[in-house]
């Protein structure tokens, strides 16, 4: 193709191209603008709207009261349709036994559902105690921080929840939880964990583990309400969260927590 013959054709193409470019730019601009208007906030780190009228839930577990009966873990599986296999727990109980030689024996057979048998002879035991574990419903949840799609979040009531219809199953949240509270549901194939029985709270009922705890070792309540039993308990007792060094903003407070517990 020689230069002279193509010149005219090029000119024509250029005008039509310019027109097309113009249209395309306008279209793209409109799309960008509209998309931005619609949901600009979701591109940013969305601020949590603090609705003072809603409760802000916290939990207390009193280690001195726990007798390791396993009713909580059993009820949790019943209430939330968690598979019975000993690999999936929204809550479980650990027994710590500190021996006289300083070593620590930790067990949690089937999450404590079937109870505990003390295998360390009495004369070797320095001290022993049960520690129920569950989601800490952290205010600065590492699991929420790492979720790439926003399928896990802290609800306006301060409950860390999972969106089962939106979770992609990348398991990053399972890695990020320092407390080992998350697992991948073997049937639903999405992340799963304690919801503080959100469906029960919404109906005015206590979480299943607390409903069935015979000794009242577990408590939940509104941290915003300075007159609630929970806040009173926190005021009168020296409580501690797990892994305070990680600054997860845990809202699960343990009474009489021993330093061996992680």
């Amino acid at each position: 193709m020689s230069q002279s013959t193509s010149a005219m054709g090029n000119e024509k193409i250029k005008t039509s191209r310019r027109k097309f470019l113009k249209t395309a730019t306008v279209l793209a601009g409109a799309a960008i603008g509209y998309s931005w208007l619609k949901s600009s906030q979701i591109l940013l780190f969305a601020a949590e709207p603090k609705d003072e009228s809603l409760p802000w839930y916290g939990i207390v577990i009193d280690i001195q009261k726990c007798i390791g009966c396993g009713n909580c873990a059993k009820a949790c599986k019943n209430e939330n349709d968690v598979p019975a296999e000993p690999f999936f727990f929204r809550t479980w109980i650990e027994q710590y036994t500190v021996k006289n030689d300083g070593s620590v024996n930790i067990v949690s057979p089937n999450g404590g559902i079937d109870g505990f048998k003390q295998t360390v002879p009495d004369e070797d035991i320095f001290k022993s105690f049960f520690v129920p574990k569950m989601c800490n419903h952290c205010a600065k949840s590492p699991c929420v921080q790492v979720c790439p799609v926003g399928a896990t979040y802290v609800s306006p009531e301060g409950v860390a929840l999972i969106d089962e219809k939106y979770c992609i199953g990348c398991r990053y949240c399972v890695q990020a939880c320092p407390y080992g509270c998350r697992f991948i549901h073997p049937v639903k194939k999405v992340a799963n964990k304690c919801t503080l029985c959100y469906h029960r709270l919404k109906k005015g009922l206590a979480p299943a583990c607390m409903e069935t705890c015979p000794t009242g070792a577990r408590m939940y309540g509104n941290l915003r309400d300075k007159n609630s039993d929970l806040v009173k308990f926190l005021k009168e007792h020296t409580t501690q969260v797990l892994r305070p060094n990680l600054n997860t903003g845990s809202k699960l407070f343990y009474n009489a927590l021993s330093s061996e517990v992680r």
Binding site: I42, P156, D163, Y198
Partner: peptide
Amino acid sequence: TFGKYGHYRAASLIDNAQPEIHY
């Protein structure tokens, strides 16, 4: 409903309140 309250589907709050109770 994405982004209504935060970086998540607001409708998921309803989903999470849906399951039937056993106790």
